[in-house]
């Protein structure tokens, strides 16, 4: 699963019948995420009721299909949860590497950085 921010929505009339009536949201990953192609977004089906501006957990692959109630949906991303708070211990990775930080503008809502 990945953390992402809902930044927009997609409307389509002509689509695979399994996607009929489904809300499609554009999600910008908040931490580095590499789909097949580097385009900075993923479109996810939303069974949870997320809104633009909210931060979400996006589930990928088969579980994403199951979340829609039937594994035959031909999609590979769906919203699993709406994030309230993220707690990060900046020095958690005591491996001598750089401190972990979300990129500017990509800090999740309710981010709580503990020393």
């Amino acid at each position: 699963m990945i953390l992402g921010r809902v930044v927009g929505q997609v409307w389509a009339t002509r689509k695979n019948r399994w996607v009929e009536g489904k809300k499609l949201l554009i999600v910008r990953p908040l931490a580095w995420f590499r789909p097949d192609h580097e385009c900075g977004h993923v479109v996810a089906v939303d069974p949870v009721g997320a809104e633009v501006g909210q931060d979400v957990v996006v589930c990928l692959g088969l579980p994403a299909r199951r979340a829609l109630g039937d594994a035959r949906h031909p999609v590979e991303a769906s919203i699993a949860a709406i994030v309230d708070r993220v707690e990060v211990h900046a020095d958690a990775a005591a491996d001598g590497g750089p401190r972990f930080e979300f990129a500017h503008g990509s800090e999740p809502s309710g981010l709580d950085v503990r020393p």
């Binding site: 949860a81 309230d84 211990h89 990775a93 503990r114």
Partner: peptide
């Protein structure tokens, strides 16, 4: 390496009770 935790009240019921 574990960096932290994510809290989400509104979530898919099939994710209920899971620590993220």
């Amino acid at each position: 390496v574990v960096l932290g935790q994510v809290w989400a009240t509104k979530r898919n019921p099939r994710l209920a009770g899971k620590r993220l």
